[in-house]
Amino acid sequence: MRLGAVLTAVFALAALISVVWVPHDTAVLTIADRTLGPSVAHPFGTDHFGRDMLSMLMAGARTSIAVALLAVGIGIVLGVPLGLAAAANRGGWLDEVIMRGNDLIFAFPSLVIAILITAVFGPSAVNAILAIGIFNIPVFARVARGGALPLWTLDYIMAARVAGKGPARISAEHILPNIANLLIVQATIQFSLGILAEAALSYVGLGAQPPTPSWGRMLADAQTMIHVAPQLAILPGVAIVLTVLGLNLLGDGLRDALDPRLRRVRG
């Protein structure tokens, strides 16, 4: 968990710093300096257009994290209320409609539809966010519903109903705080999946468009150079792996730390 938190913090920090400062402007191409090895000026070398790899990676972190974070946001903002409503209405028609809708979205191979959405509405970071975010909705709806259902059978919910509280208020006051742990853990998982999906989309050219740097497109560019400059294919991939790894470790750690069952064992 500690390693996960550190890795996540490093990349989040790199992304944040890149908003105000990167070592070298990523929009300036210096063909003369192309595919340089590591040096003091360029600690990670330069790419085939002579851009500083460290700056590219930092700016790429910004793109990846922003896209994945907003996509998770879409999932939480739309999915959680749907899941809570379904649980409050368990067995009723609303529950049925919401869950069938969920199943329908799950029936689509997610990346295929993400490709379609970005293809139809044109490739851009915003469309990548939407495409990934849509598939987060049923995930969060399911987790919220699954977490809420057993709570609804508990006596304290009954007590709240006897105290005259309606389903919306009970969901907000009792259910949501008690499933927050589940949602936080799921958010880290979806966040890491979002990073992978964003990388895949920009790798096939359907993510953020040039000149915005992104890890996926850096890899796509590197592939064309794979015989000439294979080293370019390494760093962006490592960045993706470390970010995703960090988030997953963080998620596992949070799950263990927040799981009341595990906590009770520790006494």
Binding site: S192, L196, A199, A200, Y203, L219, A222, Q223, I226, P230, A233, P236, G237, I240, V241, L242, V244, L245, N248, L249
Partner: peptide
């Protein structure tokens, strides 16, 4: 497997090609 989950498959593919 923790690592396996974190690796984007297309990048792993590029490494295999490499």
């Amino acid at each position: 497997t923790q690592l396996g989950i974190a690796v984007p498959n297309f990048w792993f593919a590029m490494l295999l090609v490499l």
